[in-house]
Design a protein around this nucleic acid. Structure first.
Lengths: 256, 256
DNA sequence: ATCAAAAAGTGTCAAGTGGACACTTTGTAG
DNA sequence: CTACAAAGTGTCCACTTGACACTTTTTGAT
């Protein structure tokens, strides 16, 4: 038992990768063709990128490896956010069919550790897919029924993303090196799913010190060119995550 | 394989239970006597309460069960906070000795899902221990070297506790039904490990609406008797956790 | 009865932050 | 040179925070 480099049949990782570009928040999914014995056609199964963990690697390494293998994405900052392990998570016929085709023990009870990240989907180049497997970006409003309990994992990740962007000015790892204030506001509006006041947003962002204005401006746009900003990495490294505050009225007040 | 009700050899849960009473924050540990073949004496191994997960139960159920089995504590609100799975987490001789005495496959690579909670240790009655195993409360400053990677798990839980008390007025589940403002402040000061201003603390707590003043007061104390308060459960249920706010100067400002 | 001890309880001010709100500027394209 | 489109800008009011020191209330001792 426990050969090094062997797969652990009971532990997997799944990656919830959010991508942002063109004012749209998308989820990275693996689209699989599953042979169906009855119809002799292929069923399509969408799933989060994920796989079993090797005995020789830790969880973070497994997440990095699995994501790279399935999508070609490397050096993504993945953050663990929860473990899922309901013994009844395999209920759908398509799930079983796929497991039977790839796993030694399709009935093994698996717990999965979920990771999430938010990246610039325009900059990320996905590996070209094979016939049976392909990585795709799916707008979050159009996410279909997913394999196993992946819909639940996705929903929880989205909720966690909304919360964390309110506490930490994350969302910079995923913007281009230089971005306009409108890009940034659009990112926040997309994730939080509501409108923000332009002036208050700018004031807050500039005063916070997490971004720096550049002298450079947009060129080739048919309107007033916007100034570029960049993320002030040093600032965040010093601060850590302690940039939150309790409000007395209990109201949620990041931006209105 | 995968008999229902069998233990999953690769997945465990560990519980980080903080207890607060008499102005002290304590950690709940299992103290084990481990036979040592060389010395023919018993080594003592401190560990977080934890064990393997059964194939028939989900992670939350496993955490509840394990905690009850090892300590007698039931109906504790346990919150999952992270999974740990470094393949090198078993390094100490005592760890091996104990695993060999209780596990079928002591070399199996195990990942563990960690849960935490904060309870009123004065109210919680621990099960009396056996010769080889006993649950004990340990002041957090005196936590010794623990089994496996349990020190790391503990440290992360403590950090998470500090963060979460700044965002949510937690800490009520663990106070007596009725408590004084000083009790509450003392809890916050202990967890945050710094002093808070009495007037500002009272103002903030009362205005927030999370506690309600009672007409009852202390009796039998040799000083001005303090008013009792109680936790306003309805309030929190409505609010959820969205009671945080980003400050422009990036400062951390819950209480000073 | 008075006093000492011990902890509870109370108010104000200045500085900073949040949220609401509408017009001007600057570039390009036709 | 005009129209269009998006960028960019300032003020006011209400509220929250943080700093700060004395009075009140009770018990127990003399």
């Amino acid at each position: 038992m426990s050969l090094s480099h062997s797969l652990n049949p009971h532990v997997s990782v799944d990656c919830v990768i959010f991508g942002f570009s063109q004012d749209t928040l998308r989820l990275l999914l693996i689209k699989r063709n599953i042979p169906n014995r009855l119809t002799e056609m292929n069923d399509i199964l969408y799933a989060l990128p994920g796989d079993l963990v090797k005995d020789s690697e830790n969880l973070n390494q497994a997440a990095d490896r699995v994501l790279a293998e399935l999508t070609g994405l490397k050096d993504i900052y993945l953050q663990q956010f929860s473990a899922f392990g309901d013994p009844t998570r395999i209920t759908k016929a398509k799930d079983r069919a796929w497991l039977e085709s790839v796993r030694q023990d399709p009935d093994a009870r698996v717990i999965t550790v979920a990771y999430m990240s938010l990246i610039d989907s325009a900059k990320a180049t996905l590996q070209p897919g094979s016939f049976s497997e392909e990585a795709v970006w799916m707008p979050i409003e159009e996410v279909p029924e997913l394999a196993f309990d992946h819909n639940e994992i996705f929903e929880q990740a989205l909720a966690a993303l909304k919360e964390s962007i309110q506490m930490q000015p994350i969302g910079f790892e995923l913007l281009p090196e230089k971005f306009t204030m409108s890009d940034l506001q659009s990112l926040y509006e997309t994730i939080l799913d509501r409108d923000l006041d332009k002036r208050n947003f700018r004031r807050k962002m500039i005063n916070s010190g997490v971004i720096q204005a550049l002298s450079e401006k947009q060129i080739g746009v048919s309107n007033k060119p916007a100034r570029f900003y960049r993320f002030n990495r040093e600032y965040l490294e010093e601060r850590g995550s302690n940039i939150v505050n309790l409000r007395m009225d209990g109201s949620f007040t990041l931006f209105n």
